[in-house]
């Protein structure tokens, strides 16, 4: 039982890592970034390539840095010039970026599946409640909790964090009060994309790498964002952990409905609280 709960937390943690990047970008730019799954995929491949030459840890760090740079570029070159247009235009452009990145990955890494193993330090199992549990899943839980704690501290206690929160609530007023929202946006989109890269490498030892790998997990991340309340960080964490448990116990007790349950949860939450768990924004 405890093992199953931990399994749910590990998968929820992975979903959170991916979803929180979406939340960051949505909060500031108010767009749903369809390219997020492709950025996750790209991060995964970058980590894979670095790890093949050096090691897993450099792959993790390298992907985080490379994807942050790509995120900053994405904001400066694509999202900022488009901000005066209807949000729908930007959403469509992010969909285009998704297609371009998939084609790029196919050209560079090929269509064949790749797999990446966990570093020696994290392979193997530990005994929890008399049952073996993979060390790597504990690592996934650890990373997601660290990211959650780090983000919360940053948003609560730093000046930039204050600006980000203010800008998420009302970008216009925040800008009038003298906050450079463009610079803020660079930081936030960079960070969000960097986290997509990080989650890509964290996910790599769990799932096959392929140019379309992002599509399979992005849907569940969207559900996390919607259930948590668009643009809410703590809501996303709660929603991710809940969906992790639903996924896990659904597969055991309601296998015939397991793929439906996250969607049913989303429909239920939207009826009960149309703004999601956090629900302060409309």
């Amino acid at each position: 039982m405890l093992i199953q709960v931990l399994n749910g937390i590990a998968y929820g943690g992975l979903l959170y890592l991916l979803a929180v990047g979406l939340v960051l970008i949505f909060g500031l730019r108010e767009i749903v970034n369809f390219a997020h799954g492709a950025l996750f995929m790209l991060g995964s491949y970058i980590g894979f390539s670095i790890a093949a030459v050096f090691n897993f840890w450099l792959g993790l760090a390298g992907s985080l840095v490379a994807m942050t740079v790509i995120g900053i570029f994405l904001d400066a070159a694509v999202l900022r010039p488009l901000r005066k247009h209807d949000h729908m235009v930007t959403v469509l452009v992010t969909f285009g970026i998704l297609l371009v990145l998939e084609a790029f990955a196919t050209a560079v890494w090929g269509k064949s599946f790749r797999s990446m193993s966990a570093p020696d330090l994290l392979s193997g199992t530990v005994q929890i409640a008399g049952e073996p549990f993979p060390v790597y899943r504990l690592f996934v839980i650890g990373v997601s909790l660290c990211v959650a704690a780090g983000l919360t501290a940053w948003l609560r206690f730093s000046r930039v964090g204050l600006y980000v929160r203010a800008s998420s609530v009302d970008p216009t007023t925040t800008a009038i009060l003298g906050v450079d929202t463009d610079r803020l946006s660079l930081i936030v989109v960079g960070l969000g994309t960097g986290l997509a890269g990080l989650s890509g490498v964290v996910a790599a030892p769990l799932m096959a790498l392929s140019p379309t790998m992002g599509n399979y997990i992005l849907i569940e991340s969207f559900i996390v964002v919607v259930v948590g309340g668009l643009g809410s960080f703590s809501g996303a964490l709660a929603a991710a952990l809940l969906i992790g448990q639903i996924h896990n116990f659904g597969a055991i007790y309601l296998p015939w409905a397991s793929t439906m349950l996250p969607f049913l949860l989303m429909v239920g939450v939207l009826i009960w609280r149309p703004t999601g768990f956090a629900g302060k924004r409309t």
Binding site: I3, N7, L206, Y216, N248
Partner: peptide, 12 residues
């Protein structure tokens, strides 16, 4: 289900 990301509950 096809396209499953997390096999943990089944493995258990």
């Amino acid at each position: 289900p096809p396209n499953t990301n997390d096999f943990a509950p089944y493995i258990q």
